[in-house]
Amino acid sequence: MTQPAKAPDGPDHAALIEAIAVRRDRAAFADLFAYFAPRVKAWMLRAGSGPTAAEELAQETMLAVWQKARLFDPARAGASTWIFTIARNLRIDSLRRERHPSDLMPDPLEEPAAPMQADHVLAMSQQEIRIRSALAVLPPEQADVIRKAFFEDKVHAEIEKELGIPLGTVKSRLRLAIGRLRSVLGDLG
């Protein structure tokens, strides 16, 4: 496997996931847990889960990180992105289980991917860092719409109501924000 790039401003989470995949490394898991579990819990709370459910979902997310570590491919997503999608899918499953236990969320990350070139692997692991800096410089009204989409359990008609702007404006701000984020990834995204 290609060596993942180390994030310049933090621990190398991708390497920790790899250590779990390769040698079931409990110390690496503890480090990953310390960083991600409280953030996943915070996201669950923001997305509308109660405190007990948020705690349980954060634990289930970390358990899935251990179980799925072998499927993590740094060429396809950074560590935070991968863990975010696991947390999101578990949250959807839990909402669905309340009604229909046998349904499921499509999990595109589990499908095999075409091999990528080494320089692409380096670029993908930088993706989150670039997105984070891009979010910081987005015009506030665009950053507001994009954060609302992730933080709150709201479909766009509700965002429209809450921000008091027409749906067309919500859509055009999101379109601009996504375009801006995509452009900071250059031709690597």
């Binding site: 991600f36 579990a37 409280p38 953030r39 996943v40 819990k41 915070a42 996201w43 709370l45 923001r46 948020a54 705690e55 954060a58 634990q59 997503a77 950074g78 560590a79 935070s80 992105t81 991968w82 863990i83 975010f84 999608t85 947390a87 999101r88 993706q127 989150e128 997105i131 984070r132 979010l135 994009i146 954060r147 992730f150 933080f151 996504i178 984020l181 995509r182 990834l185 995204g189």
Partner: peptide, 18 residues
């Protein structure tokens, strides 16, 4: 791009201890 934004949003959040 949107899922990477979700990852960045996760990084930005103030942690809530378990």
């Amino acid at each position: 791009t949107l899922e990477a934004t979700g990852g960045a949003v996760l990084d930005e959040l103030t942690p809530v201890p378990l």
